[in-house]
Design a protein around this nucleic acid. Structure first.
Length: 185
DNA sequence: TGCCTGATGTTCT
DNA sequence: GAACATCAGGCAC
């Protein structure tokens, strides 16, 4: 998959159903992506909206890399950068359905079941992703994205994004209908 | 079940 | 100095 060739909305749809595999710290954890949000430079809610800064530098790099940021004083969230260099587009991974390493996730999260990964900062913590992985290439260890069959169109729901104030009306959130790990349906 | 709030770093104004 | 792509615990109903 050539993430450099996709816009944020197309990529956000295509990422649903794909699997993320992390071997951070020598511990294998993985999950299927079930909820995403699209952001791009024309979008006031996006970190790239105000142009390139040291923080948002990797968003303006080539697609296929992780953009990891720290927020609210205690949480990390991670995006997949998409589009060609200079585009400033990315897809926020909001929720995963765990496929391996649940016990590792429980140890990291100190929470059971659906609470492991049903939110962007939770998924990040469960996979052991932190700021040191900012700019990481998604085809390399220790965090890899594996392509899976696309989710059928009728199983994908579209909604407005969560937790933002600017451009909040854009229908740029996508999730797998009926999946228990989706944070808001 | 649902609202309110504390925790707490980084970035930008 | 305020805003922020959040989460979890506490308390009122």
């Amino acid at each position: 998959m050539k993430w450099e060739q996709l816009d944020a909305v197309t990529a956000a749809r295509r990422l649903l159903g794909c699997e993320l595999v992390s071997t951070v710290g020598g511990q294998r954890t993985s999950g299927i992506i079930v909820e995403t949000e699209a952001y791009d430079q024309t979008d006031a809610a996006s970190h790239s909206y105000k142009g390139r800064t040291p923080r948002t530098d990797v968003m303006f790099g080539p697609g296929g890399h992780l953009y990891v940021y720290f927020t609210y004083g205690m949480h990390y969230c991670f995006n997949l950068v998409v589009g060609p260099p200079g585009m400033g587009a990315a897809v926020l991974i909001r929720a995963l359905e765990p496929t391996a390493g649940k016990s590792v996730m429980e140890r990291r999260r100190k929470q059971p079941g659906v609470l492991l990964t049903n939110g962007p900062a939770k998924a990040c913590q469960a996979l052991g992703i932190d700021k040191s992985l900012n700019g990481h290439d998604i085809t390399a260890e220790p965090v890899k994205l594996l392509l899976r069959e696309p989710i059928p169109v009728h199983d994908v729901a579209v909604a407005t994004r969560i937790g933002i104030t600017k451009d909040a009306h854009r229908p740029w959130r996508f999730y797998v209908r009926g999946n228990a790990y989706v944070s808001h349906s």
